[in-house]
Design a protein around this nucleic acid. Structure first.
Length: 438
RNA sequence: GUGAGUGUAGCUCAGCUGGUAGAGCGCUGGAUUGUGGCUCCAGUGGUCGUGGGUUCGAUCCCCAUCACUCACCCCA
């Protein structure tokens, strides 16, 4: 049997309906905040990520799906969305169009990691970027938008964690002090942290091992090393959050794993997710556009993990509201079936979700299927009805069944105003009869 | 890349110190020649993940391998 490959999965109904709901909510809300959709290719030149994300990051050094095409160009399945959006912004000179661009995207990303809860090799992100401004007010607005978005989905118990990681001007001093301090405390650290002290000192701050905590507490804090511009930026940002009544927690140890982040970073987490509890992550990246060879363009953005959002929603027992038929057609006999195909055509042209099976079935079997599908009505007709020119309409929810006469169909067709489902069905049926003469 | 756990019917799982497999749900049909859901009956279902070893005999014990899950690393 051919199976989907490791770390990928099929999203089947009714779960897929829940995905649509989340995606539609995001589109609706982001557009309300002035963002427009951008669709970038799923694969890009490998260099884009090497330069944008950082050659030394885990993503680039060991997690990318990279291959050569026939021109021997190195291509990579996108592992994240920000670098491609910034690339597109530079390539199409969008800065010339408007000084500020607000773009959102949604789609699959690819990283070759060991799958686990809330982590896949093909996973899906919704993200947004604001390009062309370094005003911290933008950041506060985006976070307000995200909390609104989560609230609409019914995710209330989220936590917003914020921090500033400084800029290329002030971070090096901090890193130096951090490294020196780490070297002194080396013996008190776990093996992972001893290694991280060399390879990625910032990550030591994020260590969860209990025995490391005392040492971590005594390490220098980034906030003590921010230069005046970064400090002012961060304080304004916090002020804007407060005035918008967006609740937050400052976490001085919050760091990001991608090279392009500067100044503001944030994370929105939720419990009940297992080890991967980050729902949304993002921050400012004022140097990215230049690193990619474009004009200096300040940027701020985020990405949210759809799989993780869905995990939280499913954990809450959200009903995935499946698309049930509004009418199930139950023709009895060959002649009735031929008529049913015409009725189905007319129903569908008039906006009614209608189900017609192609096997000859007994009435019992028809109704069982209608019930199984959750259909609201069943339209029953066989030779008896065809002779008399009428139909049996059964309401599946309460079992009430009425005989529809040609007279009644005509009355429904002539009624005006907002039609309920039953009337809409009668109208479509009338239309089918007068169009196809049966 | 590392560690741990789990692989038995479409799904969720039983299977006692090794004697070649069961239940519930589902699906199909019937009880009700043209009336669903509840009930009852019948039918459909499985190379016991794969390969090798031990044994008279392995779903069970041993080894290997693959897959899945969770965790580490790291990230959404």
């Amino acid at each position: 049997m051919i199976k989907s490959i490791k770390g990928t999965r099929d999203i089947l109904p009714p779960e897929s309906a829940l995905w649509s709901r989340v995606e539609n909510t995001a589109r609706e809300i982001f557009e309300r905040y002035g963002f427009a959709e951008v669709r970038t290719p799923i694969f890009e030149s490998t260099e884009l990520f090497a330069r944008g994300v950082g050659a030394d990051t885990d993503i680039v050094s060991k997690e990318m799906y990279t291959f050569e095409d026939r021109d021997e160009r190195s291509l990579t399945l996108r592992p994240e969305g920000t670098a491609p959006v910034v690339r597109a912004h530079i390539e199409h000179r969008l800065q010339q169009e408007t000084s500020i661009a607000k773009l959102y995207y949604l789609g699959p990303m690819f990283r070759r990691e060991r799958p686990q809860k809330g982590r896949y090799r093909q996973f899906h992100q919704i993200g947004a970027e604001v390009l062309g401004s370094d005003n911290p007010a933008i950041e506060a607005e985006v976070l307000e938008m995200l909390q609104f978005f989560l609230r609409l989905l019914g995710i209330q118990d989220q936590t917003l964690l914020v921090n500033s990681i400084g800029c290329p001007a002030c971070r090096p001093q901090f890193l130096e002090h951090l490294k020196r301090s780490l070297a002194e405390k080396k013996t008190g650290l776990c093996p992972d942290c001893q290694r991280r002290s060399e390879t990625n000192p910032l990550r030591v701050l994020d260590c969860k091992v209990e025995s490391c905590q005392p040492a971590i507490e005594s390490l220098p804090k980034i906030s003590d090393f921010l230069d005046s511009a970064c400090r002012a930026h961060f304080e304004k940002f916090l002020g804007y959050l407060a005035s918008r009544q967006v609740a937050f927690t400052i976490v001085p140890r919050l760091v990001r794993g991608l090279d392009y982040y500067t100044r503001t970073t944030f994370e929105i987490t939720s419990g009940a997710l297992g080890a991967q509890n980050t729902l949304i992550g993002g921050g400012r990246y004022d140097g990215l556009a230049e690193a990619l060879g474009g004009p200096s363009t300040k940027g701020f953005g985020f990405a949210l993990g759809l799989e993780r959002i869905l995990l939280v929603l499913q954990d809450r027992g959200n009903p995935p509201d499946p698309l049930t038929p509004q009418v199930y057609l139950a023709p009895l006999g060959e002649r009735a079936f031929d008529t049913a195909t015409l009725i189905a055509k007319c129903m569908r042209e008039n906006g009614i979700r209608c189900f017609l099976d192609f096997d000859a079935r007994s009435l019992k079997s028809h109704l069982r299927l209608a019930n199984k599908l959750g259909s609201l009505y069943a339209l029953i007709f066989g030779e008896v009805e065809l002779q008399a020119g009428n139909y049996q309409l059964k309401q599946m929810t309460n079992g009430e069944q009425t005989t529809l006469t040609p007279d009644e169909l005509m009355r429904a067709a002539e009624s005006s105003g907002q039609a309920d489902l039953r009337t809409s069905i009668l109208k479509a049926l009338f239309l089918a009869r007068s169009t196809y003469h049966f």
